[in-house]
Write a protein that binds this DNA or RNA. Sequence first.
DNA 1: ACTTATGCATAAGAAGATTATGTATTATAT
DNA 2: ATATAATACATAATCTTCTTATGCATAAGT
Lengths: 111, 111
Amino acid sequence: MGNSKLYRGSLHTIILKLLEEHGKMYGYEITQKVKEITKGELNITEGALYPALHKLEAEELLDVEIAKVENRLRKYYKLTEKGSIETESKLKELEEYIRNMHTLVNAKWSI
Amino acid sequence: MGNSKLYRGSLHTIILKLLEEHGKMYGYEITQKVKEITKGELNITEGALYPALHKLEAEELLDVEIAKVENRLRKYYKLTEKGSIETESKLKELEEYIRNMHTLVNAKWSI
DNA sequence: ACTTATGCATAAGAAGATTATGTATTATAT
DNA sequence: ATATAATACATAATCTTCTTATGCATAAGT
């Protein structure tokens, strides 16, 4: 992923949340959406993304549906019910992480 | 470190910032301080901490000073000038990471 | 024609953690 | 008195997650 090591560990959270918001997405679309939202600051590499999607699918957090669009293969992913629950859990974890880090570094800024 | 995988990648930032604030600290003290600040939510393991301190020292971001207190060994670490600069850089990275994640997950909460 | 964009995938290696283990002294609880 | 917890360091084996490199294939732009 990105440049900063801080992103390590947050890819699953990002994927789950994007799928929660957009219903269904395919891998390449996720990379583009992330690039767009972060204005190019975070680029998810394929070597990180695809294994992550496969893992989430294996954990039954995602369902996959194959489609052929303009003679090109797409694998659309969407949250399972289990995946929706996990998403909420991951978001709470993220919030706690951010609050803790904010306190730890005694940050002056807020979001 | 802690329970959440999100902390992966943030240990160096935590160490550097704590040293910036407290002048000098020894390893065990860092683990206790982090536990205290996060009310037990983040526990830095020794297997993560000591290699991290050694690495930061090898990168000349930290200076070390050995002391014997009550017949027990302590290794006090403090920031070098290079370490102070790196600390500011790491804090900016953290801020950017948090802003990006906040946007990505379309979070309703703020800090 | 060549490069970029779209779209998937995997394998080798690095990095940063966990878990387990080791040493040693001091304080506390039973 | 004696076992356990706390203090204080360290490292080795293993795991996870990422980067980097590579591979295949089609479509679009230059």
